[in-house]
Amino acid sequence: MSVIQARSLVKSYGDLNAVDGIDFDVAAGESFGLLGPNGAGKSTTMRMIGGTSLRTSGTLSVLGMDPETHGPEVRANLGVIPQQDNLDTELRVRDNLITYGRYFGLPRSYLQRRADDLLEFAQLTDKAGEKVDNLSGGMKRRLTIARGLINEPRILLLDEPTTGLDPQARHILWDRLFRLKEEGVTLVVTTHFMDEAEQLCDRLVVMDRGRIVAEGSPAQLIRQYCTREVLEVRFGSERNAAVVQQLGDVAERLEVLPDRILLYTDDGEAALERVTSLGLQPLTSLVRRSSLEDVFLRLTGRSLID
């Protein structure tokens, strides 16, 4: 059963189609990802799901309702974590949770307990009386997520949950999100990090310039669009272009980036031997497994992070 259903969804700003006719379904309990570079239309899609941005055309159903005409009812079941934290800086940490809960019309006695539980969950119990501005980036992010959980949402919308966080803070956050997933919360995650998509998403769509260019589980996408392994070789920026001609038969497919050449093959070491047997000596070489980054490069001819 799908909890979100989008059909031919379009959002235009003037001449620009920020979202340009996308279709997708999100099943209850799954962890669904929107992967794409900056400007792909991920945040715009998220805002339309929450009913805070009005679509230009197409249909959208969230928990069986149209978020545009039933905004309050739809959002009563959503937890929204926006790309940029929008905590209430005029209120203290714990009051941020309680006041936000009041916006859902929840009773104060319930919110007192719930706020304490969520502070615990977000590992912020000792910051309860702190000013929001005094929290670190990771703490603010966790508080924003805790706030999004105040109404025990059925669907959690996470817009770039870990952008701007250091590696340790990201891992703490991922751990918290796994727990929610185990509890059966449906997660919708946007990201431009392929490792995050691989970590968090059961299934994802790859977005570019407002359109969906591929869909599947991370493993499926890699299988469908890439070889098992990638050989990365560098010859120095001037020579890269020159040697490309000679590498034609070494791998199934190659991509030339400004600083390196990517050779797609099921056996990277064997490909490296073929390169050296041609008499070419790369300055550096690296064999790795294919990732969603490679899928994106294949689909769009561009890198995910510029």
Binding site: G71, P82, Y100
Partner: peptide, 13 residues
Amino acid sequence: GRLYEAMLSTSLG
């Protein structure tokens, strides 16, 4: 301030 953005992601209209 983005206060309204936060308010409007709740069940407030």
